[in-house]
């Protein structure tokens, strides 16, 4: 008996058991949330409102403008800034990172600069951005750019640098010149890793944008969250957080899809990693 109990705990659950435990855990969590936040349940709705109140807040956000814009406009404002900053960073960071991975002189010169910049959190650039650019959109784009460029560069460099040297040798013996090797072999082989870098970069950009919106914005999801916090509308605040999280997850999923589309040959795809 004892060994059977032990072996249950020591074996990974099967697919169905996994799902069941997952669902059970969700039910327990929701139940606990509901139970603890019911009237007289011990947790004040000012600390954490009950689930139905959060749902109400979501419906209210959907149906009526909040702080002068609809939810869609707030989301669009956030997306616009994050996409602009992230794409601009990619436009600079991707070629720079590839160059740094391929030409060691470029790496020797540029890598230390990034090593010096890297420990400064992107968020710490926000005050500087505000002084330089005011609390408009350009300040937010600037901060997102700063947050996104480091992972763009570092991951692209690593992706190119860690290409199997044997592939380069093989291409050389087959008569490829340096340019052909860089475009046909190195960049294509590195593609999944390059996209992974883009994904990390987008995640950083998103995280930083939310911070920037807490400090320098007149619309956007972070702006909703901060205002809801000031006006004690916790339901709205939680909904804003959830939307931020869902969009972050969505970005990640989309980027994984992109890998699958641009690099159908990738082993990582085959293994679902």
């Amino acid at each position: 008996m004892a060994t059977r109990v032990r072996s249950f705990w020591r074996t990974p659950p099967g697919k169905i058991a996994w799902l069941a435990i997952c669902l059970g855990s969700i039910v327990v969590l929701l139940g606990a949330w509901w139970y603890l936040t019911r009237p007289g349940g011990g947790i004040s709705p000012l600390f954490l409102p009950p689930p139905d109140e959060v749902l109400d807040a979501f419906v209210r956000l959907l149906s009526r403008p909040y702080l002068g814009s609809t939810l869609g406009q707030h989301i669009a404002a956030s997306l616009e800034v994050v996409m602009t900053g992230w794409l601009a960073a990619g436009l600079v960071g991707l070629p720079l990172g590839i160059a740094m991975g391929w030409w060691r002189k470029a790496r020797w010169v540029a890598f230390p600069i990034f090593q010096v910049l890297r420990p400064v959190p992107p968020l710490a650039w926000i005050p500087l951005a505000i002084v330089w650019l005011g609390i408009g959109e350009s300040a937010r784009v600037f901060v997102v750019f700063i947050a996104a460029i480091v992972p763009w560069v570092m991951n692209s460099m690593q992706a190119v640098y860690s290409i199997d040297a044997l592939l380069v040798s093989a291409a050389l013996t087959l008569g490829a010149n340096d340019r052909q090797i860089l475009t046909r072999v190195v960049c294509r082989t590195a593609l999944p890793t390059l996209v992974a870098g883009a994904r990390i970069s987008l995640g950083n950009a998103w995280t930083t944008l939310v911070a920037a919106e807490l400090l320098a914005a007149t619309s956007g999801l972070g702006y909703i969250a901060l205002n809801a916090s000031r006006t004690l509308e916790i339901g709205i605040l939680l909904v804003a957080m959830a939307i931020i999280g869902v969009l972050g997850a969505l970005f990640s999923v989309i980027m994984q899809l992109v890998t699958r589309i641009v690099a159908p040959w990738s082993r990582a795809n085959a293994e679902g990693a």
Partner: peptide, 12 residues
Amino acid sequence: TVVFQRFALFPS
């Protein structure tokens, strides 16, 4: 041309 022990095929 060379044939390597580790194949060195272009994965893409």
